[in-house]
Amino acid sequence: MIPIEYWLVFSSLLFSIGAYGVLTRRNAIVVLMCIEIMLNSANINLVMFSSYHSVLHVGVDPSGQVFTLFSIAIAAAEVAVGLAILLSVYRRYQTIEVDKINILRW
């Protein structure tokens, strides 16, 4: 079995990449995708821990897997709403570059 640390490092890297993207990319669509990456890194964790717990505990621990399913569904819904919002922003601002959307401040 792959040592748990490897998984953790992997998911953390993925998470960090996603976070980095959210913080730096100017295109809102890319930001959206980066959020998905972050969510997915968490999903990886869940699945990974689920299987490790199954080893440690007696029997199978499915809750991590179930959780992942839930979170995928939620992520999908989020993306849908997100895209709709970006559409509406594009209509008003003619851009979806996040640093240009800043009339609300102070």
Binding site: S11, F15, G18, A19, V22, A28, V31, L32, I35, M38, L39, S41, A42, N43, N45, L46, F49, S50, S63, G64, F67, S71, I74, E78, V81, G82, I85, L86, S88, V89, R91, R92, Y93, V98, I101, N102, I103, L104
Partner: peptide, 26 residues
């Protein structure tokens, strides 16, 4: 629209944090 965008981006980011935290707790 701007409010929604900001809310959505920060909210998504935080959701991811929450989920990651939950996964670690798990």
């Amino acid at each position: 629209a701007e409010a929604a965008t900001k809310y959505f981006i920060v909210g998504g980011f935080s959701s991811a944090l929450t989920l990651f935290a939950i996964s670690l707790f798990y």
